[in-house]
Design a protein around this nucleic acid. Structure first.
Lengths: 214, 214, 214, 214
DNA sequence: GATGAATGAGCCTTCATTCAT
DNA sequence: AATGAATGAAGGCTCATTCAT
């Protein structure tokens, strides 16, 4: 539905559905599930209030559809990563790919943060389908990688949370960080800076990792 | 919690007011300003819906009072730091003090994150009264401190955002991180881990800083 | 209660009760029974919201007390008139006395008008205890007095309603009439004008009445 | 009632809007702006509470719309009168036309009276758009017409207030006058009586007016 | 496929009223 | 006698949702 099927002109219905999802993402990202007014989504999408209900049965299901649409590519990345060779280089690539996806959907991070903070019903999905697939293999790797580093032992999983925050938080907290850097954190330039920052940090944290990133 | 004025028994009204603020902090932290139902705050505080309005003139003013109450000690910390000697040791102390305050008010981080994400009206206060006083002197220090390190130039301000995220985010994203570490991130033990993690990271990022932290 | 018992200093309670009635008259006159907020009466009287309830059991009973207090002297006038010699002179005196009382309680007319317009529960009292005692004998007189005048027949009772309106309406509609006469209709001067107007009108309507007014 | 636009079937929305206005007129006429409960209007109109708000943005704007709708034809009458030849005949016609309009909207007088008594926000409109256009030319005429009559001087403007009261008050005070005449004052018969009464009174007050009314 | 119109439920807020002090 | 504090019950208004067209 979201990803247009190549070589086929999307029907009017598909087009409308897409517009609604797009609008919903923007509005939900700002006001959360409870705080969002259906009316605002409809207005943003340029459709009638009622039209929305021929595409999604309720506000909360629309919300879930929005989350699903944004999160799935992330999950796919993770799964791919966890199945392949998990060296520093791959980790770097994962960060790069993640930042790229997030910068294309700047509202996704906010949506996810809101869902986490409000302990929404999608939180478990996030955990079980996205975080754990990333985490479970990573923890094994980390145990090894952090051996004889300052991060060994209990600090190891915090490495994961650190990078989760540095990537997602960069977008979610953009309204505040804008003040810090006096520029738009979601701009191409600053996304690049943040990506570089993260990779540099990764290198510095694991200076003896077998394979270095370019 | 209730900042009792030494030597004076709080009146019934003061007690009720405090209960309301306490309850409001919990509920706002989960649902944000718009998503919160006054009824839920009243129920949590164990008072009638209407009682609330003899203490605060409106939902949004209650929200602001909650934020103000939580943020002010943070601001005081920052101001103190920015006026004193700003070496690595002081930075470490600032982190420690901040983490301590946040762990005593575990909902504060969520409140602030929600305010940032939804670009609430308190955001500007946050920026002007809290972040800038921290930032403006810090940027000067950082320019110097990051010279000939990987963080020099544009990456320098990202050092600030990183530590903001690692402290506040640790609490705000606790519902998700609980899954990662299989324990409560806001527990005394894990707050200590995270604090240690941050300080270790600080040391590693600036290995040549004149004064090391213990 | 209202009329102080001569030679006795009113107790504090009597004084408070009086202040409440005074305030209630003002506020009810403006907003009517339903539109009036108890709070506004209490504030006007300078007492606590709750104090009011130690004097009157409910808003509507306070309202009735206010009406009763204002209307009773009018009723007494009427009864006296209807029992005495009912000539033109007496009618003139009745008008004068009525206007005098109304000018001393400028809110009374508004209270009564509101009660009539909203068909309040006191309306029947007004009719049975005040209007009918005036009307029933008057109609007999009028039948005689209007004989061979333009007012005979069905128009006769309208003579009564006319003078009711010219007296009460002068005060009740003062906010509008102020615009007409560019002065305060309830001022001593204009009350005198209106009284004179009514008596002149009465004379003109019944030029052959046996006894003329001075 | 519903001022149908000739040759066009009113849409459902127009029909509903009209029903709401009609109902609002009835309820506001009894309870005034503050005393009226939106719910009662909705019930009277046979629509849902919320429907009302898709037609009028607030209770007070609905109130104003009701007043405006009722008052405008009166204003038009006045303006026409004040621009034409203003002799006794025209004055009589004005009274007749006014009484006709008022008898078709029997609640209008009550609405206006309530607005005057409670010094509502529409009072100034009433004065500036309705009363003054009538009054300003009339006062000039009256100065002339009352010369060497009992009404000359200060009593002249009271002639205007008298006829205002005799027309509007007849309807506004109907609930009380019903008791006096033992019949419905707003019935066709009694409106005719009152009209005749007023015109007779006018003639009697100005017996030497150049042109007599039929 | 889209929308204008309608509505039940709920929200924020206020009100009349009560009670303990 | 008076009041600060509390509350159940509305009151005005909005919202998510439905339905007829």
């Amino acid at each position: 539905m979201v990803e247009k099927i190549e070589g086929r002109i999307p029907t009017r219905a598909e087009f409308t559905r897409e517009r609604i999802l797009e609008a919903a993402e923007i509005v939900f990202a700002r006001h959360g599930l409870n705080g969002t007014r259906i009316r605002e989504i409809a207005d943003t999408a340029g459709v009638n209030n009622a039209t929305l209900y021929s595409y999604f049965p309720s506000k909360s299901e629309l919300h879930e559809a929005v989350l699903e649409r944004g999160v799935r590519p992330l999950i796919d990345n993770m799964v791919e990563f966890s199945r392949g060779v998990r060296d520093m280089k791959a980790a770097g690539e994962l960060l790069r790919a993640g930042m790229k996806h997030l910068s294309e959907r700047p509202n996704l991070s906010r949506l996810i943060y809101l869902e986490i903070i409000s302990e929404g019903s999608y939180l478990e999905e996030l955990s079980s389908r996205w975080l754990r697939p990333l985490l479970d293999p990573a923890l094994v790797d980390l145990k090894e990688a952090t051996a004889s580093t300052p991060w060994e032992g209990n600090l190891a999983p915090l490495v994961v949370t650190t990078f989760v925050q540095l990537s997602f938080g960069h977008f979610a907290l953009a309204p505040l960080f804008r003040e810090v850097i006096d520029a738009d954190p979601t701009s191409e330039e600053w996304v690049a800076h943040q990506t570089k920052f993260m990779i540099t940090l990764l290198e510095q944290m694991f200076p003896n990792a077998p394979e270095q990133l370019a």
